[in-house]
Write a protein that binds this DNA or RNA. Structure first.
Lengths: 137, 137
DNA sequence: TTTAAGTCCATAGAGTTGGTGGGGTGTTAG
DNA sequence: CTAACACCCCACCAACTCTATGGACTTAAA
């Protein structure tokens, strides 16, 4: 399951997608409109900035905004940043690979199953973008 | 990601699938062969028994064994028992549904995306069975 | 130089995960 | 009938993660 943090991140990103190309948006505005705890949201947005998804401006008239066209930002990318691995096992993760202990990958049936799950999942998450977070216009 | 408990459960179930129809298997044997902490494994097997996956016999000659043909037991069922929801959001879970707070499902783009992920995942996990845990014979 | 707004750091409570210890209960062999 | 056996059940624990919150600091605009 996605963490609360991830769900907050997507709410915020949906809001920023609506406001794309309309200048910086205040953390406090997002917090109120999307009902996300202010300080928690602060941490999340900062993390997304460090991951090159968002840009920010300090001082009066400042705030956060999307760095790229929302239609170019994959949902999979966001999940990896705020929620971690997408795969169900470390040994089948593309971006967070770690081998299993006491388990021969070549002879592990679970390994094969989880590769299929991973591919099926990525097939969705790599094709959906922030644009898809908004209801149809 | 699957919990360690879930990974242990699958290791144990793979072992019991190998020994299907060969009588009860000792917890201690599984623990040693699959390198799973004994007491932890005890809890896991008990839970699988209560969920109707395993059967047990006490006393000398006792142990655990699969209640049904391994080819009839879906991987999805096991995941739900030992790991909980398969969906990435409570509001798209078939077996553990809970509605989102402050979120209109009909107008939530993330909701739709996560339904697709869920369906893609289930498409694999509902067709794979314990039999698939073993390498090809 | 005041005010607005993001940045950074530290902490902390709650819940979950992973694991252990010990006694209880039912079964079988002799 | 009783000893050995093996699962059953309960309680507990340390470590970690998740979900925050508080306060001081930095940068930018008016």
């Amino acid at each position: 399951m996605l963490s609360k943090k991830s769900q907050y991140a997507f709410k915020a990103l949906a809001y920023l997608t609506e406001r794309y190309n309309q200048g910086p948006v205040l953390i406090s505005e997002i917090s109120i409109k999307k009902r996300v705890p202010l300080k928690f949201l602060e941490n999340i947005l900062l993390e997304l900035k460090k991951a090159d998804i968002l840009e920010s401006k300090k001082g009066k008239g400042g705030g956060y905004y999307l760095k790229k066209d929302p239609a170019q930002v994959k949902v999979a990318t966001i999940v990896r940043i705020v929620n971690g691995p997408i795969a169900m096992l470390p040994c089948v993760s593309l971006n967070f690979y770690r081998r299993c202990e006491n388990c021969d990958e070549a002879a592990c049936g679970l390994h094969d199953i989880m590769i299929q799950v991973r591919d099926a999942t990525l097939n969705v998450l790599e094709t959906k973008t922030l644009r898809d977070l908004l209801p149809m216009a």
